[in-house]
């Protein structure tokens, strides 16, 4: 048994595998299949100040080796999360990363301030949702706005703050450096890539929102590249995600510089994917005689 534990911003994870925000809800549905305590952590569904109904359907489309989604941050609002979902999650022996979003920096800060008074372990600030018209991706694609929203949220909470970055930018390292300077304790990346599919028989986009976020194995090489670039550009930990669907993928992303990995679309293909990834990582480490998963973080030897 290899040591799979990692520490990010002072928070101990028993293993580095975390279901990504938006895929896993607040954990209840997957708890029917396996105990949440097997996971290193959970990134909860992106939650805003008030309830959001989300976008019209269809919200989902298949793509080669992946998918598009445009859920539009449907969520019950932060008060409901704190009252009805967080207490349950805090009993499950895993790290809870509360993913938050908002239309303005002030709204994000207000949500963070409410979480600051709870026992949640970490806050993951989504500045990169491609599916909402205001805020969301707009914060994540400009350095000055990314810095402003991070500063406001930083001022509202002492919780470890992870800022989730958009890949839909010219230079993700510039954004990463901006949020680091603004007080982020870690960054997570990549959120989905903006994509589109058209039904050629009707001439209509498949998604009712026309465009949506692309994820799945097809985006994995982009995630590896961006995690590697960002890990080399900032001094804070990087949580990697984007198309991870096996233990080998998780190891690869950690070699690129990730201190932990989030798993998204792979869970739709196989609901047990996060649990299998943990087992596969352990088997690989054992087969290589590597005692701790920490020993592979950022060990890629670039040419």
């Amino acid at each position: 048994m290899a040591d799979l534990s990692v520490n990010i911003c002072g928070v101990d994870f028993k293993n580095p595998v975390i279901p990504a925000s938006g895929v896993f809800g607040y954990g209840r549905e997957y708890e029917e299949l396996f105990p949440l305590s097997k996971l290193g952590g959970i990134a909860t569904k992106g939650t805003t100040l008030h309830l959001r109904t989300g976008n019209l359907a269809p919200r989902i489309a298949e793509t080669p080796a992946g998918m598009l989604n445009s859920v539009g941050l449907q969520n019950p609002g932060i008060d409901h999360f704190i009252e009805s979902e967080l207490p349950n999650l805090l009993t499950k022996d895993l790290v809870v990363l509360a993913n938050i979003a908002g239309a303005t920096p002030e709204e994000c800060a207000e949500v963070a301030a409410k979480l600051d008074e709870t026992d949640v372990h970490m806050i993951e600030l989504n500045i990169s949702c491609p599916n909402v018209k205001q805020g969301g991706a707009a914060f994540g694609t400009r350095c000055d706005m990314a810095e402003e929203v991070t500063k406001k949220v930083r001022a509202a909470t002492k919780k470890p703050l992870v800022v989730k970055l958009s890949p839909n930018v010219t230079s993700i390292t510039e954004i990463a450096k901006a949020v680091e300077a603004a007080g982020a304790d870690a960054v997570s990346l990549i959120n989905t890539l903006l994509g589109m599919r058209i039904d050629i028989n009707t001439g209509r986009p498949i998604l009712r929102n026309n465009v949506g976020g692309m994820s799945g194995p097809a985006v994995f090489p982009i995630a590896v590249r961006m995690v590697w670039q960002v890990a080399n550009a900032v001094g804070i930990p990087v949580i990697g995600m984007g198309g991870v669907s096996s233990g080998r993928d998780a190891i690869e992303l950690m070699m690129a510089g990730a201190s932990a990995v989030q798993v998204g679309a792979a869970i739709f293909t196989d609901p047990y994917a996060p649990v299998k990834i943990i087992d596969e990582m352990n088997d690989w480490l054992d087969s290589k005689g590597i005692a701790s998963v920490k020993d592979i973080i950022g060990t890629v030897k670039p040419w």
Partner: peptide, 17 residues
Amino acid sequence: EERMACGIGACLGCACR
């Protein structure tokens, strides 16, 4: 019916008004 991802109510993909 609706285009669906998780199938169990977690991802909120298959919305219906």
